[in-house]
């Protein structure tokens, strides 16, 4: 029983990580109606920036917040400079541009920082919490950070005029212009915020999986799955989706099929969910008008 509990809690902890990356995906989807395949790599790159700052002697939290700002600016610049020219291109062409960004960031990180793995500090105490060994302080802290980001994101979209304007711009650009929303900047802002959230996710992931240029490749897939299971237009759903995917992956791996096939089986289950509920568990069902 205790090992089972351990697996579930470990699953929740990894799920928290998937959830944080899923939030970044939801963010950018809300703002631009694109799924950014380069999201994980931008997060990874931002984490390297944080690593450099900490190496340079900066205190953790200063580096943390500075990295968020840098990632935000990086996201805005990428949208303005690289994505903007293909705004009008077919969706698949945009996907190819995202793939291009993915390999560029991955390759640059490998070039600048090499492919040797690095340790990344955790801001949370090393001592396990409440005297239990089921879960580390960092894992609890990471889940907490994810929930805080979720709360901020939810409030932003729900209660601020800017959040409303961003949702409007993604949905109906023409009408948005007619009420005076600067649609182009909303897209850039969406990229900026998504990158910032991704940076937070990266800094929470890195102490667990270690920092290397490929650290996000597996996570992105699960985060993508989490976002879709939870509903890509629903931040709360995406976080819940993250936890579901994390627990599912761990418990299946430990008890049902062993670690060899856990990726495949987890994915089959996720797809099973989507086949039954094509808009995700908590996503909005889209009604098509003829």
């Amino acid at each position: 029983m205790e090992t089972f509990l351990h697996q579930v809690i470990a699953g929740l902890a990894t799920g928290g990580i998937y959830a944080s990356v899923a939030l970044a995906l939801v963010m950018i989807y809300q703002a631009t109606h694109h799924v950014n395949f380069a999201q994980g790599e931008i997060a990874m790159f931002s984490t390297y920036i944080a690593w450099s700052l900490i190496q340079a002697g900066m205190p953790y939290w200063v580096a943390f917040f500075l990295t968020i700002v840098i990632a935000f600016v990086l996201g805005v610049l990428v949208e303005r400079i690289i994505v903007r020219p293909v705004e009008q291109a077919p969706v698949l062409s945009v996907v190819v541009v995202f793939i291009g960004l993915l390999v560029i960031f991955n390759s640059l990180a490998g070039w600048i920082y090499t492919y040797t793995i690095k340790t990344f500090p955790s801001p949370f105490p090393e001592k396990p919490p409440f005297g239990t060994h089921l879960v580390s302080s960092h894992e609890i802290g990471a889940v907490g950070v994810t929930l805080v980001v979720l709360a901020l994101l939810y409030s932003f979209f729900r209660f601020t005029p800017l959040g409303l304007a961003m949702r409007a711009a993604a949905q109906n650009p023409e009408s948005s212009r007619l009420v005076g929303i600067r649609v182009g900047w909303m897209l850039a802002l969406g990229w900026g915020l998504a990158s910032a959230i991704g940076a937070i996710a990266g800094m929470m992931v890195a102490p667990i999986v270690f920092l290397d240029p490929n650290m996000m490749s597996g996570i992105l897939l699960y985060a993508f799955a989490a976002a879709l299971v939870g509903g890509i237009d629903n931040p709360g759903g995406a976080v819940l989706g993250g936890f579901i995917v994390g627990v599912l992956e761990n418990v299946l791996g430990a008890y049902v099929i062993g670690n060899d096939l856990k990726l495949s089986v987890a994915l089959v289950l996720i797809i099973g969910v989507l086949v039954i509920r094509p808009s995700g568990l908590f996503g909005r069902v889209h009604v098509t008008r003829v």
Binding site: V86, P90, V94, V97, G100, L102, I104, S107
Partner: peptide
């Protein structure tokens, strides 16, 4: 960083020939 160059090619192609 060969893949960075590859990525630049990808993006460049899509700029010049979006279809």
């Amino acid at each position: 960083a060969p893949w960075a160059i590859y990525g630049v090619f990808l993006i460049g192609f899509m700029y010049v020939m979006p279809v």
